[in-house]
Design a protein around this nucleic acid. Structure first.
Length: 301
DNA sequence: AAGACGAAAGTGGTTGA
DNA sequence: TCAACAACTTTCGTCTT
């Protein structure tokens, strides 16, 4: 790390892997953010060294979905008749136990990943998500494994949360409801998990922009491109006036679509719009009233 | 008869002490 | 940990087309 602080030219930079920052020891400037955790600071040249040097060790406590299914070699150095066995055999058994345990743990993590990836693929294809999204989500999931964030959580929950985060990051957000429906995980569970991993992994996920929902809504309602443009235009103005602060993005988007459709003579009922947006008619009415008042729409609806 | 409108009460999650 | 709170939903009665 031959880097220098760009501010005071000091060479005393230190890395804080917990926060993912490089900090200058002299002036306190954060030189870089969001650095990847490069793993342990030691190197191991074979499995034995690795086992010796690892302080954390394999996640044993919660990472045992296979509890009760995996054979274990018991602790009592007796043969089937209960007689003690020779010390030579005891040593052999000891080694066998050790390796058996290690092999089980390694394979259970692989199994975990395998289940997760197939689950991810299933949900992603139901949601019609492209390949690059799946790749990114899979990568995110691997990061969660590396950071041991899955312990005590459902695999499907973490997968769903990862998908949700990546979708938002790529600007093609799916609602929690949609993901919840496809994955069979409760919405609040996904939300909780999402918030947790976002914090732990320092994800910078942008706020959902309501206009990102517009194309999907208009497409599902079979509305014309003009309506779509109009709706996005309306949203832009709404955002400028701070009308969407604290509002659910889907509700605002739905209202914009409703207004735009009506203005273009392609009327849809509030219920139709409400259904594809996953909100109620009342919410559309409320948003739509706000939009009408503040944007001073002179069009009679 | 169906859709639009809005009031009132209920729900689940966030926030601040 | 609990209460206040905002956003949203549910429900329902009334008005409009």
């Amino acid at each position: 790390m031959g880097d220098k602080c760009p501010d005071c030219k000091s060479k005393k930079l230190s890395r804080d892997y917990e926060r993912g920052e490089v900090v200058c020891n002299d002036c306190g400037l954060i030189v870089a953010e969001n650095i990847a955790d490069a793993g342990p600071e030691w190197r191991a040249f074979d499995a034995e060294q690795k086992a010796k040097r690892a302080r954390g060790g394999a996640p044993i406590k919660y990472m045992r979905p296979n509890k009760g299914l995996v054979t274990e070699i018991d602790q009592y150095n007796r043969d089937i008749r209960g007689a003690k066995i020779s010390s030579k055999k005891q040593a052999q058994l000891f080694r066998m136990r050790r390796w058996h345990k290690r092999a089980s743990i390694a394979s259970s993590m692989e199994r975990n990943l395998a289940i997760a990836l197939s689950e991810l693929d299933r949900i992603a294809s139901y949601l019609g998500l492209p390949e690059n999204i799946r790749e990114s989500a899979a990568l995110l999931y691997r990061k969660c494994i590396d950071k041991k964030l899955i312990r005590g959580r459902l695999i499907e929950g973490v997968v769903s949360a990862a998908l949700y985060a990546i979708c938002r990051e790529y600007g093609i957000p799916r609602t929690l409801d949609e993901i919840a429906e496809m994955s069979g995980i409760e919405k609040k569970e996904i939300g909780r998990t999402y918030r947790f991993i976002a914090q732990e992994l320092n994800l910078r996920v942008p706020l959902t922009d309501p206009s990102q929902y517009i194309p999907r809504f208009t497409a599902e309602l079979k509305l014309s491109g003009q309506v779509q443009e109009k709706a996005i235009e309306l949203l832009k103005q709404a955002i400028k006036q701070g009308l969407i602060a604290g509002r659910g993005p889907t509700g605002v988007a739905a209202a914009a679509v409703y207004i735009a459709a009506t203005m273009n003579g392609e009327r849809r009922t509030q219920k139709e719009v409400a259904d594809v947006a996953g909100v109620t008619e009342v919410t559309i009415r409320n948003r739509y009233r706000e939009l009408k008042e503040h944007l001073k729409l002179d069009v009679e609806l």
